[in-house]
Design a protein around this nucleic acid. Structure first.
Lengths: 125, 125
DNA sequence: CTTGAAAAATTACGCATGTAATTCTTTCGA
DNA sequence: TCGAAAGAATTACATGCGTAATTTTTCAAG
């Protein structure tokens, strides 16, 4: 199930809160993305076709919900990037980012903190 | 400069070694990807149009070289993913991967090792 | 000098995507 | 009850991409 960039904007809105109406989603994403209302509806309809969202009728409108978990989507995208560009390993990615000065001190702090909670790899060299 | 998936296969071949002839690249990537020779040439020609590769004539053929650095490409892709899915921060990505058991012990070890070399963030809480 | 094969350039074509306009359907208010 | 507006469904259309066939150019061998 491939979710395109534009579609993922709609998915993010749904992951943030659901079920919600098309109008509701339009109100949230159309402006910032410079999209017309129909464009957002098109994206919703494509997502329906792909089976990425579900909809239940509510009077004259539909209320939409995501059918794929954000976690799935995120994982697939992350793993794919790491596999394609970093030989499937995380350390080279981190190394790359640090070389590119793409890590804030906050980021580094959070990382060090997090790393401590990870199991294994406790040898001291 | 957007480099597509198929194009990136050709770029990887060029990043690995250059300059090289079209035939040389075909020999390397056509088989594994089930591509015909002309397909690879098409990709090369699109990359030329985009200005992603350069070519110098060598007798009756061209020798191609990358014009964009792999590092650029990798950085753009990584930063883009982190921005879109992890609010621009690395720690949430690492956290996600660890929760999904996507980190091998080797990976964790390498990560701990690497983290030590990072500047700052040395406070102990 | 001619010609044929290798290489390059051009063209093709179906599908996905970004972005919408148009048309159909339903329902609520006059 | 009827028509207009909201909403949904269908259709559109340019561009990019994956994948290639066709055409043109060029060199090298006869």
């Amino acid at each position: 199930m491939r979710i395109s960039d534009a579609e993922s904007v709609v998915m993010e809105a749904l992951w943030a809160s659901h079920p919600r109406s098309a109008q509701d989603i339009i109100d949230e994403v159309a402006g910032p993305n410079d999209w017309s209302a129909v464009t957002v509806r098109s994206l919703l309809s494509r997502l329906m076709n792909k089976g990425a969202v579900s909809a239940v009728r509510d009077g004259r409108k539909y209320l939409y919900s995501p059918l794929v978990a954000r976690d799935e989507y995120v994982h697939e995208a992350s793993q794919n990037l790491i596999d394609r560009l970093f030989d499937g390993q995380l350390a080279p990615l981190v190394s790359h980012l640090s070389e590119r000065q793409a890590l804030s001190t906050d980021d580094i702090r959070a990382l060090k903190q997090l790393i401590r909670t990870l199991p294994g790899g406790d040898q001291d060299d």
